[in-house]
C-alpha cells in the first residue's frame, strides 16, 4: 500500500520546522548553517513528492539546483565562519552584534 501524498508533505513540514527551530534557537554559527541545510532538504523532499504526484521530472530537476545552491551557500558560509573565528576567536553569534571590528 502507498502512503498518501500528504503524509510525505507532513514529513517535509516536520523537518522544515525542526530546521527553523535549529536556526532560531542555537547560538552557534555552524549549528545555524546545519539548520539551513535541514530546511533546504525538507524543501527538496516536498519537490520530489510533487514530482511523483504529478508525474513530472521538473521537481527533481529543481532539487538538483537546490543541491547546487546548498553547496555554494555552505562553502561561502564556512569560509565566513573561518574568517570570523580568526578575527574574534569565537563562533557565537551573540558576539557579532556590531559592524565595526
Amino acid at each position: 500500500m502507498m502512503p498518501p501524498f500528504s503524509y510525505v508533505l507532513v514529513l517535509s513540514a516536520i523537518l522544515f520546522g525542526l530546521g527553523v527551530v535549529c536556526v532560531a534557537v542555537r547560538r552557534n554559527l555552524i549549528m545555524i548553517l546545519i539548520g539551513v541545510e535541514i530546511i533546504i532538504n525538507a524543501a527538496g523532499l516536498a519537490f520530489v513528492a510533487g514530482s511523483l504526484r504529478w508525474n513530472m521530472p521538473e521537481g527533481q530537476i529543481f532539487v538538483l539546483f537546490l543541491a547546487a545552491m546548498a553547496a555554494s551557500e555552505v562553502s561561502v558560509g564556512l569560509a565566513m565562519i573561518v574568517y570570523l573565528h580568526k578575527k574574534k576567536k569565537t563562533v557565537n553569534i551573540d558576539h557579532f552584534d556590531e559592524m565595526k571590528e
Partner: peptide, 23 residues
C-alpha cells in the same frame, strides 16, 4: 514559527482529500 508551520500544514492535511501517490 514552528507552530504556525505545523498548523498550516495540518489545515492542508485535513482539508484536502487523501490521494495515494502513484505506484
Amino acid at each position: 514559527i514552528a507552530a504556525v508551520i505545523f498548523f498550516s500544514m495540518a489545515i492542508l492535511f485535513f482539508g484536502t482529500p487523501q490521494t495515494a501517490v502513484s505506484p
